[in-house]
């Protein structure tokens, strides 16, 4: 008796299911499977894309510049709000800068020629913006070194694809012989204009390492920072020491966050 009832029940269940979804025969089933598989595949791709894009769109700000231009001081000022006594850095250091709800990671890179590019290689993938420190007091003397470094950074593939904004901070404006930002911009533009020529005709290096010779600016015109297309370069004046004049930098950071 009981078995019979159970069998009946099973049959009835199957029948009711069939009556509700009549089209679901063998053929339609196949389509459904394909559809589900496609959906899952697309979802995975989408998630992967989000994930990769999330990491590639870094939240890093790189502090770069020659030795003794005030990078470590600026870093301490921005991240911790204190003045420090500093010496030549051997290693990069990182800290968080909070702008409202959002936060950025600041990387203080060493400025010494021997290690600056090694440290730069390590963190350039995380960069969103670059703060390039310039010592306004000694720019006249060091302009070739500064321009060379800035040129190399701007030419870098990772910078051109990831970094949208570069802030050149003309630091140490409190010195009596400090140059103003527009003047520094002019000097650097003139220098980079020359560098484009000399760098293009540099010797090939030993080994298969490719020369980094992407042309900056527009062909046939004198170089200007506004020609750089995707990268926006701004010049501001600041004094990192005791945080006297940091507002241009902080406002720039807030825009970027």
């Amino acid at each position: 008796m009981a078995d019979e009832v159970r069998a009946k029940k099973r049959i009835s269940l199957k029948e009711t299911f069939r009556s509700v979804v009549p089209e679901l025969n063998e053929e339609n089933m196949l389509y459904l499977q394909v559809a589900v598989a496609l959906l899952v595949g697309l979802l995975t791709l989408f998630l992967l894309w989000r994930l990769l894009r999330g990491t590639s769109r870094g939240r890093g700000i790189l502090l770069m510049g020659l030795c003794e231009s005030g990078k470590t001081q600026m870093f301490s000022r921005l991240c911790h709000g204190v003045d420090v006594v500093s010496v030549t850095s051997i290693k990069e250091s990182s800290g968080t800068y909070t702008a409202g709800k959002k936060s950025l990671t600041l990387y203080d890179l060493p400025g010494h020629e021997r290690i600056r590019y090694g440290a730069f290689e390590k963190v350039k993938k995380l960069a969103r913006g670059i703060i390039f420190m310039v010592d306004s007091g000694t720019i006249q003397k060091d302009v070739r070194d500064v321009a060379d470094f800035l040129y190399t950074v701007l030419c870098d593939g990772a910078v051109q694809s990831k970094v949208s904004r570069v802030l050149v901070v003309c630091n140490k404006q409190d010195l009596t012989l400090a140059r103003a930002a527009p003047l520094i911009q002019k000097t650097l533009e003139k220098e980079i204009n020359l560098l484009r020529v000399t760098k293009a005709s540099q010797l090939q290096s030993v080994g298969e390492g490719s020369n980094n010779n992407s042309f900056l600016g527009k062909q046939g015109q004198d170089f200007e920072f506004s020609h750089l297309g995707p990268i926006k370069v701004e010049f501001v004046e600041a004094v990192a020491k005791s945080g006297e004049n940091l507002s241009p930098v902080t406002s720039w950071l807030q825009q970027l966050a």
């Binding site: 290690i115 590019y117 090694g118 020359l194 020529v197 000399t198």
Partner: peptide, 22 residues
């Protein structure tokens, strides 16, 4: 390896063409 790369990296700017122009 890192030390050797660091050692071979020049400690000053090397752009003779630029210096010739100067």
């Amino acid at each position: 390896t890192e030390s050797l790369v660091q050692l071979l990296t020049p400690k000053r700017r090397l752009d003779i063409l630029r210096d010739v122009v100067e």
